[in-house]
Design a binder for these strands. Structure first.
Length: 376
DNA sequence: AAGTAAACCAACCGCTCAATC
DNA sequence: CGATTGAGCGGTTGGTTTACT
């Protein structure tokens, strides 16, 4: 049995994506929404396999993606989630809405693994219990402890329950639903948030810690934004199904900021709520867990500033992230499970950052299970 | 300045799973 | 009920950039 690879066709292009390809893909998705990837190459004329299109979209082109500059807070969440979930990057990414699984995976492999290895080497012989916090560098190098396995199982149960809830369309009123956010909403009311202008917000090269890749297109989203702007202004003929959305696209580019406000009043109201809840809960969690946070900082000696990133974040960044959150939420239902709806992020973060409370893990599991049970 | 190693990350590959035929 | 298909996930690779000698 086994499925033949989708990319072994002759004539399928590989390697880095060009701006033109991105434009084609983005405009197609703007028009039709993400999904049905099989039809994307044929409908767009892209010489890419469907897999490659999906990957390009989810890992790079999708709005609301934050790139580079992992904050200490994010680092800690990744470390703890990795300890809990193992290398299940998609699950981990679901708790970091602005990060892709690929990004988190890369960051883990290139930064955190080494960092933890170093720290572990420093603490070696003193604090072996930290193995379960990912200090082994690779949680799969050693047999999973019983407790860890159980937690993993519990998480699986929770996720299964959540999936079932979604399948049964049992919605919470204050949570954006993967089922209530219709495609119509995406393509009409929410479409402005999908605007390519997001590149300028979400991928700010000036804030990047790594200024390289300047000549590499794939790493410079600003190029896409510029290209798309020009493209939309000049309305070139691209091998995409051209409709009157071209004009819409151009309008969207020029009125991006206004449209964000529009979203607050239109279909984006739900997404706005989520955007707020995501950012505020994060900050709330920070204040609620300052002690644990500090303990964590002191334990790991991360080169973090005294204040958390969420506090040091400028107003502009907050706004930008908020806008990004909105856009992110609009597509989240198609790309990621929305676990925040089941376990409040603040609670999760509290648990994640609370190293000093040994029962915190069980508490969260119990609560999450209760939440899941409450939905039935 | 040139060569080399290390770091980084986008993209690919192969697998699994669920839905459909 | 088995085969096929589409989609998603995690591991890995390869190209590019940066740091070091």
């Amino acid at each position: 049995m086994g499925r033949p690879p989708c990319c072994d066709k002759v004539g399928v292009k590989k390697g880095p994506w060009t701006p033109e390809e991105d434009i084609i893909l983005v405009s197609y998705i703007q028009e039709h929404g993400p999904g049905n990837w099989r039809s994307v190459p044929t409908n767009t004329g892209l010489l890419r396999c469907s897999k490659s299109c999906r990957l390009r979209w989810t890992n790079y082109l999708r709005p609301g993606i934050k790139r580079g500059n992992f904050t200490d807070h994010e680092e800690k969440m990744i470390i703890h989630l990795q300890a809990l979930l193992g290398n299940r990057w998609a699950a981990i990414a679901s708790y970091l809405p602005q990060r892709t699984d690929n990004d988190i995976k890369n960051y883990w492999n290139t930064h955190l693994k080494k960092k933890l290895k170093k720290l572990h080497a420093g603490l070696d012989g003193h604090d072996h219990h930290n193995h379960q916090d990912g200090f082994s560098g690779n949680s799969h190098d050693q047999p999973i402890s019983k407790g860890q396995w159980e937690r993993r199982l519990q998480t699986d149960i929770h996720m299964a329950k959540q999936a079932l809830c979604e399948a049964l369309s049992i919605d919470k009123p204050n949570v954006i639903s993967t089922t209530t956010a219709s495609h119509d909403l995406h393509l009409q009311d929410l479409k402005p948030s999908v605007n390519i202008g997001n590149y300028n917000i979400n991928d700010n090269p000036s804030t990047s810690t790594r200024p390289h890749h300047t000549s590499t297109y794939a790493s410079n989203a600003e190029n896409i934004a510029k290209l798309l702007e020009n493209w939309m202004k000049n309305s070139p003929k691209v091998s995409v199904h051209q409709t009157n959305s071209d004009q819409t696209n151009a309008d969207q580019t020029n009125s991006f900021n206004n449209n964000n406000n529009d979203n607050d009043n239109k279909g984006g109201a739900t997404a706005t709520t989520i955007g707020h809840s995501m950012s505020t809960s994060s900050e709330g969690a920070h204040s609620a867990t300052t002690t644990a946070d500090q303990a964590f900082d002191s334990l790991f000696s991360f080169n973090s500033s005294p204040s958390d990133v969420s506090q040091s974040m400028s107003v502009d960044e907050n706004n930008a992230n908020f806008i990004a959150d909105q856009a992110s939420c609009l597509f989240q239902d198609e790309s990621k499970p929305n676990l925040e709806g089941q376990v409040p992020l603040s609670l999760l973060e509290k648990w994640l950052l609370d190293d000093t409370a040994p029962h915190a893990h069980e508490d969260l599991i119990n609560i999450s299970l209760e939440n899941g049970a409450g939905l039935f």
